[in-house]
């Protein structure tokens, strides 16, 4: 830095203010499109600002001649919990009902098969006999056909 170019504090301040004033004048000559884009940016920013949390009162009562609002966050939180819990409970109840009904239907089907086997002319123990199984594989069609003709 050139030591011969030192300025007094007052001179520094005066010069700085004059330059700042010139810069302010320059602001007035900003192009219209720049001003418009700045205005649009400002509008977007204001629209995007963080909104404060609104606390809603759920009731009101008169206490010593004064209207007191009550409820607010605690009650709202309770109803919020309930609001999310009830659908879950309904879902579990529905799943339980579907499970029970399916079990009943399966039991009915097995029971009807058992009943058909037990009421048939052929005893169920016949199906455990290896000779009978071989008879079914080899000659079932013929015997079935013969029985049909006999009928």
């Amino acid at each position: 830095m050139n030591t011969s170019h030192h300025l007094t504090e007052a001179h520094t301040d005066r010069l700085a203010r004059q330059v700042a004033a010139q810069l302010d004048q320059g602001l007035r000559e900003l192009p219209h499109d720049i001003s418009e884009r700045l205005r649009a940016a400002r509008t977007r920013a204001v629209a995007a600002r963080r909104q404060p949390v609104v606390v809603l009162a759920t009731g009101a009562r008169v206490q010593k001649g004064t209207l007191v609002l009550e409820g607010g966050p605690d009650k709202m939180r309770f109803w919020g919990w309930m609001g999310s819990l009830l659908p879950l409970i309904a879902l579990f109840l529905g799943l339980f009902a579907i499970h029970t009904l399916q079990n009943d239907w399966r039991a009915d089907e097995l029971a009807s098969v058992d009943a058909a086997l037990l009421t048939d002319e052929l005893p169920p123990t016949a199906y455990t006999d290896p000779g009978f199984l071989r008879f079914i594989r080899a000659g079932a069609p013929e015997s079935t056909a013969g029985r049909t003709n006999a009928d």
Partner: peptide, 12 residues
């Protein structure tokens, strides 16, 4: 614009 948005969103 970014500065305006940051100010509004975080310090509004």
């Amino acid at each position: 614009q970014d500065s305006m948005m940051k100010l509004a969103e975080h310090y509004g």
